[in-house]
Design a protein around this nucleic acid. Sequence first.
RNA 1: GGGCGCUUAGCUCAGUGGGAGAGCGCUUCCUUGACGCGGAAGAGGUCGGCAGUUCAAUCCUGCCAGCGCCCACCA
Length: 862
Amino acid sequence: MKPTYQPQDVEARWYDVWEQAGAFRPEVNPDGEPFSIVIPPPNVTGVLHMGHALDQSIQDVLIRRKRMQGFAALWLPGTDHAGIATQNVVERELAVEGLTRHDLGRERFVEQVWEWKARSGSGITNQMRRMGFSTDWSRERFTLDDGLSSAVRKVFVDLYHEGLIYRGNRITNWCPRCHTAISDIEVEHEDEIGELSHIRYDFADGTGSVVVATTRPETMLGDTGVAVHPDDERYRDKIGQTVVLPLLGREIPIVADAEVDMEFGTGAVKVTPAHDPLDYEISRRHDLPAIKVIDEEAKITQAGGEFFGQERFEAREAVRHALHKQRYLVHVEEHHHSVGHCSRCGTVVEPMLSDQWFVKVRPLADAAIESVKQERTVFSPRRWENNYFRWMENLRDWCISRQLWWGHQIPAWYCDACGETIVSIDDPAACSCGGALRRDEDVLDTWFSSALFPFSTMGWPEETEDLATHYPTTVLVTGFDIITFWVSRMMMMGVHFTDTEPFRDVVIHGMVRDFEGKKMSKSFGNVLDPLELVAKYGADAVRLALLRAAAPGNDIPLDEQWIDAARRFGNKLWNALRFAVEHIGITGVPVEGGYPDDPGPEDGWILDRLSSVTAEYDRLLDDYRFSDAMALVYNFAWSEIFDWYLEMAKSPLKDEAQAATTRVTLGVVLRDLLKLLHPAIPFVTEELWAELGDGSLLITSSWPTPPAIDGPAGMGDLQELIAGLRRFRAEHQLGRTTLGIHLDDPEGLATGWWEAQLAALAQAEVLSHAPPPELAGHTRIPAGKVAAFVPLAGVVDVESERPRLEKALAETEKLLAASAKKLANESFRERAPAEVVAKEEAKRDEFTARVEKLRTQLAELG
RNA sequence: GGGCGCUUAGCUCAGUGGGAGAGCGCUUCCUUGACGCGGAAGAGGUCGGCAGUUCAAUCCUGCCAGCGCCCACCA
């Protein structure tokens, strides 16, 4: 049985060690500059899904790297009370026992939810631990904590007194199942095929009729008018007349309103002020009464006459049937439109007139827009700013009251005696008139408290040390789907109440989708559960796979093969490092520094690469280009360190001094590689760290800063030569026979070290350091400034080289022709930058030389 | 109706104004001190179509085709 890395065993060990060492606290770098991230708080009801795994993996990479760079890095975790979602969960539990929340009453129900939270609320945080996320749990917050609740209360009261929160009787979206109002963005529109019913309304004076079109015939029970466009020739002389509402016999006026679309339907709109936003607006302009005909249960009210008590969709059919029977229904046609559904439960939303609380968002939004325009907050990628602007510019007032019990109860009291409304931070005892007070029963939209999260979690409005140090935060990482729900509202509240933007950078990532690019959903059965994948492949693999796929702002189609590839990378790393320790004998590697002063050629080469890869990696991570950064370090590790350097380091032809230098170099290179990889794959790197020397925690070690050095000359040529020889061997299927070669090396690059590497890596024996006197019977393998001549006799048939050479000649001639043509172009010479022209000339010369040599060789074949 | 994005290897996707990349899959060879979950070599792309800008376009601009997402008081 071959040894294979077992992530499960390793990962189970490390998290507690880190947490108990306090390694996730910013205090590990007491003198460091602050760097802070506040987590997008997952719902307490939630289980960790792929979206969280991606979002939080990105944050962990940022925070772990900054921590290693010496910043006082804070990643503040928390959960959201998620009003409707959580209440629904507990209500469902009650339903099993045949109970409703009303059977318990408000107080006992809320107690029950807290109990549920105590029981299950740590589910998702434990899953975050399993993923290895380095959040500072000592600062964990919950949106219903005392501190956050007092922040919510202060914000509500202040906005109320500034006139930015008001209570009004407005049309809002009502979910009859959740039994609460919801805001506009909690409504999801879906295209549906419905029916457009044309209904005849007769004039009261018997002189004729007008036909209206509607998708919702049942709402005609609440009609209080008919509206037409003032410029509509068809109806101009009908304005002001009265029609008789069918079925109910109510007389209602025809009014003119410019909002009516002449093109739609018949151009005449029935006006139902209590159940349609546009109709409500029209009714206000024309003083039409509102009659509520659908109640909170989505049943017809008493105002609906004979239809009283019917469910709204039954009533739709019943009303249409009655209209048909009484010959008011002119005709019915198929109609495509979109219908709003509750984003929580999918029920069709009912627009309904009710008393609700609203935030007047315009002034807040304008300030928040300005923050991004002035680049005090910058989105990455920038294109998401457009999305933000468009949303912010078209905002309508935000309905913040919810008819739920789980949440922040609105701090408003009403006096029934004198009609006074009191909004106050402290609970008032009684009204100034002496009358008894009745508290508003509603709670606030969950997103109201989420909007304060970046500063309420740090103790605001108290002037705490955390607030002074870690606010405003540095980066916010989130998906584009909640720019509207959350980012925009944090911006509004942050700018208004703290006088600064709540974060400097906003990193927007895409959604995790399945391998066909489809949204993951339970109904498709295409959901990948991160925890199942962690059990199967390890947390490191899941993290690395997500990060490698996380191109800026793009959706991520995730396939298990990506995770398997990431797992194999961990295995490769594990094996490579163990090999280095056990067989090459690296040992006692210092925690930092220790770069050799006088490296051998391959050592100099890899140190040069390490230095430039690190610089590039830093640049990519600073630009939030995670997939590029991961690809860079992954390829560096695998194809340069493991496939080249480790092979070269094995070379037997070293004296003890050279071997010692290589041991030192390999040690520091692998050490720095572990450091570079640690933010992405913390478990396996931490496990291997202990192999290198004293087992101090990698998580608190310093970020690598390898010195820039010049690698040895000719390294690229050597690699190319080895590759060329390997290709020759593969083409002729030479197996393991040793190949004799003559080196053509005009610049004297090939030292004895080359001979060793050629022998080890290409199974080639150097016969001489000069071209053979007689070139016939040899083939030439070029590699930059050097070339190898391979005697063919006894190795391969001379003629078998002809096709290879001819193919190479044809290819090179094509390149030469393209290059020559470009250089013959006068405007290219004049207008292209000099360096580009020079580069092109060098190419042409190289191709020319190569073509000549290939021709000579072919001629020599006979 | 408005806005945004995508179209690159067999599949899923990165990427760049100056000779096209990854993972997986495929072909051939290799039990060469750790890894066969490995190594070496290779096949495979008119970078969606048509115009334009440019010395130079897969990349910039416009149009077209297909796909996807978001927003919208589509009675």
